[in-house]
């Protein structure tokens, strides 16, 4: 499913990674929101849901404090953002981890490290410009 909103939520506990992804996506014309873990990200989603504001795509890490990425994806699927595409962005490349992500409802799995242009290409496949 393709989104139309160019607003992207990044969920990653690494501030350097968030800054790097935010820079690349902003340069490509996306509006970026970010959260350091699943709990904070759900709070952002809740605020946007109440304000009837769209989020075009969610990009999440897996290994995070407070709430891991898989639990976060499952929680998103219980909200009004259940149809929003979720891309997992992680150092984990094992097949069983990917299957966990797929079962939780992720739309894609991108293994770190990646180049900015690779990320932008992936995002553009989910968000219709």
């Amino acid at each position: 499913m393709k989104s139309t909103s160019r607003r992207v939520l990044i969920v990653d506990d690494s501030s350097t990674l968030r800054a790097s992804v935010e820079f690349s996506l902003s340069e490509a014309g996306y509006e970026v929101l970010h959260a350091p873990n699943g709990v904070k990200a759900l709070e952002i989603l809740d605020k946007h849901s109440k304000g009837n504001r769209q989020i075009g795509m969610i990009i999440t890490d897996i290994n995070m404090p407070a709430m891991d990425g898989i639990t976060f994806i499952k929680e998103v699927k219980k909200t009004t953002f259940k149809f929003t595409p979720i891309l997992v962005m992680t150092t984990e490349s094992e097949e069983n981890k990917k299957l966990e992500g797929k079962a939780a409802g992720a739309s894609g799995w991108l293994v770190k490290p990646f180049k900015p242009e690779q990320l932008i290409r992936v995002v553009s496949r989910f968000i219709r410009s």
Binding site: G101, G108, Q118
Partner: peptide, 9 residues
């Protein structure tokens, strides 16, 4: 020369 490691579900 990083190769894109992407899986679509």
């Amino acid at each position: 020369k990083i190769k894109e490691k992407l899986t679509f579900f």
